[in-house]
């Protein structure tokens, strides 16, 4: 019995670990989409962030500062997307896909010399006292600093979005930019800041993959997690707490598929791997069914470029 509980605790811990990169990237994207901008290039930003963090740590930078480097690299990528889509009003979908290519290329090109190298990473940081609780300690309180940061970000972002004037301004820009503009809010400024924020968080999400979850750099190591982060945002209906739920759920079901195999499940691996995707759809359908809500509350001005009308 205790053995089974131990496996469960390990599973929860693995799910949280696997979900953290998704959560960080999804939180940034959530804020950005709330401001009315869609960035499909999250995967590319995460790759650049992962490389920047690992390269910095490899060069002798303290791992904490290396995470900041990843944030900085992500910031640049986010601003690049922002300047094309927000300042110039270019198509957000194409710009996101272009950013993906660019991020894949930049990280691959500059990462060549770091293949097979080691660097100090972010080790797990047990929470004093709580980490010693049997089972729960192992499941929840023995993670790396970025995991805790991700969890703490959720209420902070939820509070800022829903309870502050900044949040109100951001949401207004995403729902009705013309009205926000009429109230004296600078739509461009808000959207650029959101682009920067989303870039930083996606970069840090990448850093979690190269410094904490794994401590290495491998070309294209994000392996599609940027797309899953986008799915998490939609799954969350643009609400931070539900993003936390979605990211951890996806991580947990993914981690469970390997454990089913290790425990001797006879189902073929590809079919087992459909579980996280099927679960995501199932939960979303269930929520929609129960709440009978017909709109999923996407920001009304998402993907709509804003152009201030000339006043004559």
């Amino acid at each position: 019995m205790t053995d089974a509980m131990g496996v469960c605790a390990a599973l929860i811990a693995a799910g949280i670990q696997a979900g953290t990169a998704l959560l960080l990237a999804a939180l940034g994207e959530l804020v950005l989409e709330r401001a009315g901008v869609l960035n499909l290039g999250i995967e590319g930003i995460m790759l650049v962030g992962a490389l920047a963090a690992f390269a910095a740590s490899h060069a002798g930078v303290n791992p904490g500062l290396a995470v900041a480097c990843a944030g900085g690299a992500g910031l640049c990528m986010g601003l690049l997307h922002g300047s094309v889509t927000v300042l110039l009003g270019a198509n957000q979908v194409v710009a996101g896909l272009a950013l993906l290519m660019l991020g894949t290329g930049i990280s691959g090109f500059f990462g060549q010399r770091l293949i097979g190298q080691t660097a100090p990473g972010l080790d797990s940081l047990p929470v004093p006292l709580l980490a010693d609780i049997p089972l729960a300690g192992r499941a929840f309180f023995r993670h790396d600093p970025l995991t805790y940061a991700g969890v703490l970000l959720v209420p902070s972002i939820a509070f800022i979005l829903m309870r502050t004037t900044w949040g109100l301004a951001l949401r207004a820009v995403g729902e009705n930019p013309e009205a926000a503009d009429a109230h004296g809010i600078s739509v461009v400024k808000v959207r650029m800041l959101a682009s920067a924020f989303a870039g930083i968080l996606a970069g840090i999400g990448g850093a979690h993959l190269s410094l904490a979850y794994n401590q290495m750099w491998i070309e294209r190591m994000v392996a599609g997690r940027g797309w899953i982060a986008l799915a998490v945002v939609i799954f969350s209906c643009w609400r931070p707490y539900r993003a936390l739920f979605g990211a951890y759920l996806f991580g947990l079901v993914g981690a469970a598929t390997f454990r089913f195999q290790a425990l001797g499940s006879p189902v073929s691996a590809p079919l087992l791997q459909t579980l996280p995707y099927l679960t995501t759809i199932a939960v979303l359908v269930l929520v929609a069914w129960r709440s009978r809500r017909h709109t999923m509350d996407a920001p009304a001005a998402l993907t709509v470029p804003f152009r201030r009308e000339e006043r004559r």
């Binding site: 270019a90 272009a98 990280s107």
Partner: peptide
């Protein structure tokens, strides 16, 4: 190397997009 090709293709798209929008 293919990574450089990716950079190039990304840039081409970005610039085409920016030029068009501008």
């Amino acid at each position: 190397p293919s990574s450089l090709v990716d950079i190039l293709q990304g840039l081409i798209l970005f610039l085409a997009l920016a030029a068009e929008a501008f």
